[in-house]
């Protein structure tokens, strides 16, 4: 119950800030949309016409997931940096709920709020491309939830390191390209990536949205890998975060830098 109150407080904060920074949010959306248009134009103009439709569909799904990964994984790093600069990180550290629960609720609230934007972006992209993908919510949702859990794990790792290093902006810039790499590269090209966080999930969602698969058509091994990734990366993320928090408290690093 107490965690629900933490979550509620953070969802509310996220929503208020999104409204207050509306020009920023709109600018970010326009940037993403323009980037998508660039890719779409590239495929339409110089891509192989025989695979054009499939390529565009891939771009839409990959692009949406890249945006999601950025929001979930990268944003938490920026948030910690801002909190430390503002001096509010120590106040969060004073909560009897523990910083990790606040950070987890930040991850959840950011995802929930941004998800509405993501859905808008998805339909805008499909409309622009004239390619309507299979949005089978019942099949996508369980996969998406498990994929998000592994993303949260990665987000907690980033949050933990940011708490110690603080000046991690340069790394966060690079990270967005690493995330692009993980979302754009198909598993058929690099099967070992299935054990990387969220790659398997995105591949399965691609199967549903592009190839029209349903959840029951996936092999048990696929589901097991997805569950394993979710548990493993979330566990690792939480462990790393708690170790980083302990280290930051030993070195007195929660204060502004």
């Amino acid at each position: 119950m107490q965690f629900l109150n933490v979550l509620n407080a953070n969802i509310r904060r996220e929503y208020i800030l999104l409204k207050r920074y509306l020009p920023n949010t709109i600018a970010m959306l326009i940037t993403f949309y323009v980037l998508f248009l660039g890719m779409f134009a590239g495929i339409s103009l110089i891509g192989d016409p025989s695979t054009q439709d499939t390529n565009i569909q891939y771009v839409i799904v990959n692009y949406i997931f890249w945006f999601l990964a950025m929001v979930v994984v990268n944003d938490i790093g920026w948030q910690i940096t801002n909190e430390a600069t503002q001096g509010t990180l120590e106040q969060l550290g004073m909560s009897p709920m523990g910083i990790w629960k606040i950070m987890l609720s930040r991850l959840l609230s950011t995802t929930l709020i941004e998800f509405i934007i993501i859905i808008g972006l998805l339909y805008l992209s499909m409309f622009t491309a004239g390619q309507w993908l299979n949005v089978d919510v019942l099949s996508i949702l369980p996969i998406l939830i498990l994929t998000l859990i592994s993303m949260f794990g990665l987000g907690l790792i980033i949050a933990g390191f940011t708490m110690i290093l603080k000046q991690i902006q340069a790394f966060l810039q690079i990270l967005q390209f690493l995330l692009a790499g993980l979302t754009f590269v198909p598993l058929s090209v690099a099967p070992f990536l299935a054990f990387f966080p969220f790659v398997k999930g995105i591949d399965m969602v691609r199967g549903i949205m592009i190839n029209g698969m349903t959840l029951s058509q996936f092999a048990l091994a696929d589901i097991l890998i997805l569950v394993f990734n979710a548990v493993f990366y979330f566990g690792i993320g939480l462990f790393v975060f708690l170790r980083c928090e302990r280290f930051a408290m030993q070195k007195g690093l929660l204060a502004h830098y």
Binding site: N8, A9, N10, R12, G87, T88
Partner: peptide
Amino acid sequence: RNLYWRLTVRENMEYFAGNRGKSR
């Protein structure tokens, strides 16, 4: 800087109380 500058007075109070597990 113990507060969030882009939140109002009341929102700050509600947010910090929320982070201690208390409802609005």
